[in-house]
Write a protein that binds this DNA or RNA. Sequence first.
DNA 1: AATATATAATAAGGGCACCTGATTATATTG
DNA 2: CAATATAATCAGGTGCCCTTATTATATATT
Lengths: 168, 168
Amino acid sequence: MANEIKAELAAGKLAEYEQLSKIYDDIVKHAKPRLTVEGQGKILLALSDEDHQSQRELATRLGISPQSTSEFVYKLVKRNLVTLTKSPKDKRVNLVNLTNEGRQEIESAAQEVPPFLKALSDTEMDQLSSLLNKITTAMYEDIDAANPTLGVKFHKLFASRYLKQFKK
Amino acid sequence: MANEIKAELAAGKLAEYEQLSKIYDDIVKHAKPRLTVEGQGKILLALSDEDHQSQRELATRLGISPQSTSEFVYKLVKRNLVTLTKSPKDKRVNLVNLTNEGRQEIESAAQEVPPFLKALSDTEMDQLSSLLNKITTAMYEDIDAANPTLGVKFHKLFASRYLKQFKK
DNA sequence: AATATATAATAAGGGCACCTGATTATATTG
DNA sequence: CAATATAATCAGGTGCCCTTATTATATATT
């Protein structure tokens, strides 16, 4: 079937892109490294969307265990990017707050346009956005079906990032 | 500038896709997990392209340290996916060889079309392949400029994967 | 109020992908 | 043959994650 081959080709290209992008940042140095959407970076991202969340909230929202969340928060505290304050309402909970440095960190690492995207024309840029949008929408649906508490949160988290760019 | 905004949007969507795909496999279970293109998976992939390479060759080709290579190979040996044989020409070198299980592992984990791609029509599939092709080509150029010994090898490595699919 | 149970966070320990700095064989070369 | 280069390994470390206790603090039940 011709369409099966098309799909396999697209899947292969997508896999290739993913793999390449893993090594791209290592090898092709940027002035400012991209904000990593893992671990500590995830926490920062979530806080930039909504500050003063409890670790429990962060964990649930980001789909990582509370233990890992605690670890990342601890590391961020050491880097002076967040502070912890005990909630007065519930002495069990630690609220995680962005410091000015933390906010700056997010700002300075704001999504830059990677150099390799310059290879596309305006029209192609539009096409790519639209295709990726269909793909991510489908992914959110699958993720949501598998774990209803997660998908929407992520969407919101990412959406807030583009919005910030448009405001400027 | 309008085109700058288009580029930022595309960059954001790409980042979103990357992040989502990281958690997709965890949450949306597949019968067969995708062959991971990291660590042990990288080694297998390189061997499927060309068997009986020395660890040194693998390390250079994959852009990872010889020490890490040794570690991954060791783990693959424990999983019976590769064997080590001393080169008769140079007793220092260990040749890494795929076992039948190893070959099967690669085969069975061959790139399946992820469910979320089904959201695209044939035409869109073509568009996506073509766009990604432009992007990866640009990435290879950047990578090659930064580290001339690496890019082409990677390209060959990935290219061999699609080709296999077309043969069927 | 007193006990039982639920919940937030931490501690402890483990796995995987990498890395750097020795160290040990084995080659090659002057 | 001594000096140097090279393949691989050992030891130890970082970052991202996880699971299984354990410790406080809350809330519910009797």
